[in-house]
Design a protein around this nucleic acid. Structure first.
Lengths: 226, 226
DNA sequence: ACCTGAACACCGTTCAAGT
DNA sequence: ACCTGAACACCGTTCAAGT
């Protein structure tokens, strides 16, 4: 028997300084967006970078530090409307939509944030912007703070709800199973649910539209007659 | 050298049928509440039950099935107010508060739900109840479905936000670090944030009160003049 | 049938070593 | 300094074996 060369990836030694924090974060985000938090592994990350597993540790203390940096970087990419582009109420709406969009476009960012308290995970610019708009809309200080937190909570909850649903529907025959379950429900025990089942399914298929409806209601309730 | 007995846990063979699904779920919930999802391990679970790791597999297909069952069980323990105890609006509020309370009392339940799509994770009774109340409050079918989803999203988001914050504050000196960071912010770049920093911190220290404020606003916005 | 330990294929990370 | 593979202490789960 002759000695054969290894078939799988006879990876050469990576050239010096080919790796840097930015390249690592790019790869991490792409990996997370493509395959989710479960597949986000130091080994997978290194492989995507074409580098030995331990090479990453020269640039980050460990996986947690990478996760923190990813979260921070994504939060900083939230797209905000130009300042003063509309009346405060409408502009506020746009800011919230920007936050929602980020979280639905990067579902794993949201998961990262929920999994573990993240160091310095504040989207400072966004917070300041929202608070300013709430004050401009006529809310006194404490009320503005309260309203801001409520808006963020609703936004995070909506994004989470929708990505969860999206993931669940990916499974084979999930839609049919839900349908069958709803149809099998005793009408006399759950009258409202059974009669509104189609509406419920339809509403949830329309993530962004549903988010905006609730957002309008929440803003209306928070700002009131201001 | 003499052969010594093993010092650590010379656990006897567990008596037959001492284990059952309910006991396992109890242990799982207590473990999750006490130590969080990170410590929720098949090995830790078995140890808490005083049993070999593989014993659990005689009752559940695997960890995922246990997680599903835990989620289902917790959702079924949501405490609801007696039906017809108040006018629909007030009763609806109570139902939402019940959902919020469950999620803040069992933070890991929320994490379980966000980590993975869970089979049959519907709190059927709660959904039916909320839909019924929304209709009783005067909303037409589609609007009731929309409102229900919005309320759940806000509730989940609030609970998540607060447990996250609670966990973050557990860390040594976390409070001081946040304070310092806010103080170090340039006032001219983030005027609203800097001036409202105290209010922001205060609002977030008051989870349930903040939740109820936002809830009232949301219900107000959703039901409007109904 | 129910419970067991050994073993397997993973994971994050430590360490000593190469360049 | 940056990158490497081997090794360690974990994890969920498969398997063959005990009672």
């Amino acid at each position: 028997m002759s000695v054969t060369q290894p078939v799988r990836s006879p990876r050469r030694r990576a050239p010096r300084n080919s790796l840097n924090p930015d390249r690592i974060l790019d790869a991490a985000i792409s990996l997370l967006d493509r395959s989710g938090t479960e597949a986000f592994t130091m080994r997978a990350l290194a492989q995507q970078l074409g580098v030995g597993t331990m090479a990453v540790y020269s640039h980050f203390r460990g996986k947690d530090e990478i996760s923190d940096a990813v979260a921070q970087r994504l939060l900083d990419t939230i797209e905000l409307p130009p300042a003063g582009c509309a009346e405060p109420r409408a502009e506020l709406r746009e800011v919230c939509r920007g936050v929602y969009r980020l979280f639905t476009e990067h579902p794993s960012a949201l998961q990262l944030l929920t999994l573990r308290p993240v160091r310095g995970d504040d989207a400072i610019t966004v917070i300041d912007r929202m608070l300013g708009l709430l004050r401009a809309a006529g809310l006194p200080g404490t009320e503005a703070a309260r309203a801001h937190v409520a808006l963020m909570q609703y936004t995070v909850g909506s994004a989470l709800w929708n990505t969860r649903r999206a993931r669940a529907l990916c499974e084979e025959g999930a839609r049919e199973r839900v349908r069958a379950k709803l149809d099998a429900l005793p009408r006399d025990r759950y009258p409202a649910l059974v009669s509104l089942a189609p509406e419920l399914l339809c509403v949830q298929d329309n993530g962004m539209a549903q988010y905006e409806r609730g957002l309008d209601a929440l803003i209306e309730g928070l700002l009131g007659g201001c």
